[in-house]
Amino acid sequence: MTSEIVQKYFRIENLPHIWCPGCSNGVVTRALTVAIDELGLDQDNIVVVSGIGCSSRAPGYLDFNTLHTTHGRGLAFATGIKLANPKLDVILIAGDGDVSAIGGNHLIHAARRNIDITTIVFNNNIYGMTGGQYSPTTPTDAKGTTAPHGNIDKPFDIAQLATAAGATYASRTTAYHVNQMVKYFKDAITNKGFSMVEVASICPTYYGRKNKSGSGVQMMQTLKNDFIDRMAYDKLPEEKKAGKHLMGVFKNITLPEYTAEYQRVIEALQGGESNE
């Protein structure tokens, strides 16, 4: 037994899920269904695609058309589905490693094309499924099982990466800020173009333990305390800016969408040759 929203949008027979105690993946996945419900979208028309990783197991629990693909390639599969049938609402669920390391190329090109796919990144700063190796978003000096002496890499800012690559909607929120998350999901899904919502998430089991971040609850508290809206951040006195992370909307513009542009090509060709 569970809530009406979960009963409606989840495959109850596959629950409870495989995620660890305190992992925020369930929070984010549920928030996605709330956004879909509030938008009143047709459940049969929604396709949720993922790659490989902890968050990529989410589609298996969701009662839509769901596709669990190969590591990093979710956006490429999603691009094929969306172009083949532009009427479908296509959503990608990806982890930070999946979408910005092995799948980084697909991310920047899907954003560049402005294809109408909503990408939701569960950014927990670590490879969880394989046991805690550092990812492209692991902060410098943080520890992972492959960074036992501290990470010397500089992290990606995934939302800004999508923005720079051409996404027409990009925002960042956290797994704690559920109301904002639902709003961002709705805005992202509604945007006709490539949209990205990066959700700062937590992995108490691997990231938390390796970095002495405390319990899941403490890590959620950190999300609550450390993330600040980018507009509010600008108004903070310098001494209060240290240690803060930015959330908010980074991009929200309208540009021609890829599948609509392709449809124009088809119509021009077919219209021009209707006498054949």
Binding site: T2, E4, L15, P16, G22, N179
Partner: peptide, 18 residues
């Protein structure tokens, strides 16, 4: 509680619901 439960184990529901 419902929003932050990762396991869909707590929610606001009708008193009469199963």
């Amino acid at each position: 509680c419902e929003k932050l439960c990762p396991d869909f184990a707590i929610w606001i529901g009708g008193k009469e619901d199963e």
